[in-house]
Amino acid sequence: MIIPHPLLGPCDAQEFTYLGDASLIARPDGMAEGAADAFHDYLYLRDNPAGLHRELWYHEQGDRSWLVVTRNTLTHEIVKAELARDVARAEGRGR
């Protein structure tokens, strides 16, 4: 596969390490009420879509960017690749 790195352009997937569902970005607050349940859901409940899937890839043999790649699990078509940091900020994880 070829991953369109938002900074570096097309890169072979061999340069990356795969982690999994991009919902891992949405880490709950460990000090909040009901944290145990929230962490259970965060860590163990995942969607496994046949179709578009947002997932985390790490450019380990490259610039060390974590990316959120939107990939069609049926065709392996990659429709989007974003810096995970931007996604995290957009999801309200910034300051």
Binding site: L56, Y58, V87, R89
Partner: peptide
Amino acid sequence: AVPVFRHMEFARQCLWPD
């Protein structure tokens, strides 16, 4: 050494980007 560094980068970029 490698997995911990990867994990720290994950935390830095994905969990606490600012």
